[in-house]
Simulated assay, not measured.
Amino acid sequence: MTKIKLALCQMNVVDNKEENLKKATSMIKESVKQETDFIVLPEMFNCPYSNDKFIEYCEEEKTSRTISKISQLAHENNVYILAGSIPEKENANLYNTSYLFNRNGEIIAKHRKMHLFDIDVKGKIKFMESDVLTAGDNVTIADTEFGKIGIGICYDIRFPELARLMAQKNALILFYPGAFNMTTGPAHWELLFRSRALDNQVFCVGVAPALNENASYHSFGHSIITNPWGEIVTETDTKEELVITEIDLSEIKKIREELPLLKNKREDLYEIIEK
């Protein structure tokens, strides 16, 4: 199977976990009606993007209402779901964690955000995830019926080494649930997704929360799919929206044959290796 129908759920996240889960459920069910194979939720889809809310909304994996609900939805609807990310607590640590569920509702991959969002753009935005979150340390690859996929979260996309490591492990699609803001989003979001797709000749998928002007953190939205030629397949704006798009993974082989970037690397001179 080379064709895969993706659903990008750019949902409006509010300061109410129950409402967020209802919204996610609604968008998942609507995606299923449109015969989607693979549904993607945004970064921190059950929680406002704020350090104090990460602490308030965090859940332990074994007892998580959010994980239980998404697992149930994946199983009942026979669909893959990448549950964007949630604040996950393990012992004394908090992580920004993404879970991938297969059609049976089983967790088949788990990615903890590796690169924490610590920035200070003078006069515009300052955010320090490391004040409350702990970084993950694993490159995340999952086996699916469509082939291997890679998972990063938001700020992870800024590091081309991670994308290359996932591509070297034969990932065909790189997913980055993310929540760029109104400063970094207009400047870099589209550029980064096009670049990572082009660098590695893969599809890249980013799904963000919609812009909520009442929130303390303003998400740029603009959920996106880019193809192995570096083109934009689809992109939203800032409002809440469900986008269903079919991609054909056979494009990867075609483009790699026409423009053999990965074959032409000078591995006698340089390489990227995972420690």
Score class of each variant (00 low, 15 high):
residue 212 N to A: 10
residue 236 T to N: 13
residue 272 I to W: 08
residue 68 S to H: 09
residue 223 S to A: 01
residue 218 H to T: 08
residue 137 D to Y: 10
residue 133 L to G: 10
residue 122 K to W: 06
residue 148 K to C: 00
residue 110 K to N: 03
residue 189 W to E: 02
residue 176 Y to V: 01
residue 210 A to S: 15
residue 52 D to K: 07
residue 199 D to A: 01
residue 147 G to F: 09
residue 70 I to W: 05
residue 223 S to C: 00
residue 46 N to H: 05
residue 175 F to N: 05
residue 188 H to N: 11
residue 223 S to P: 04
residue 22 K to P: 00
residue 178 G to Q: 10
residue 9 C to P: 06
residue 154 C to T: 05
residue 87 P to N: 08
residue 146 F to Q: 06
residue 93 N to I: 03
residue 192 L to Q: 03
residue 216 S to Y: 09
residue 91 N to H: 11
residue 269 L to Y: 14
residue 38 F to A: 06
residue 102 N to E: 08
residue 226 T to S: 10
residue 53 K to V: 04
residue 119 I to R: 00
residue 23 K to G: 06
residue 63 T to N: 14
residue 132 V to Q: 13
residue 41 L to H: 12
residue 40 V to C: 11
residue 221 G to H: 03
residue 28 I to Q: 07
residue 224 I to C: 11
residue 1 M to A: 09
residue 217 Y to Q: 14
residue 272 I to K: 02
residue 193 F to A: 00
residue 38 F to N: 08
residue 37 D to K: 03
residue 129 E to N: 13
residue 64 S to N: 06
residue 179 A to N: 11
residue 44 M to I: 14
residue 74 A to D: 06
residue 164 R to D: 00
residue 210 A to L: 12
residue 68 S to P: 03
residue 231 E to A: 13
residue 185 G to A: 01
residue 74 A to Q: 09
residue 194 R to A: 01
residue 25 T to D: 01
residue 62 K to Y: 03
residue 11 M to F: 12
residue 215 A to N: 12
residue 250 S to D: 15
residue 56 E to V: 05
residue 244 I to S: 03
residue 184 T to F: 01
residue 232 I to W: 06
residue 29 K to C: 03
residue 30 E to F: 14
residue 53 K to N: 15
residue 83 A to Y: 04
residue 129 E to K: 07
residue 133 L to D: 05
residue 153 I to P: 05
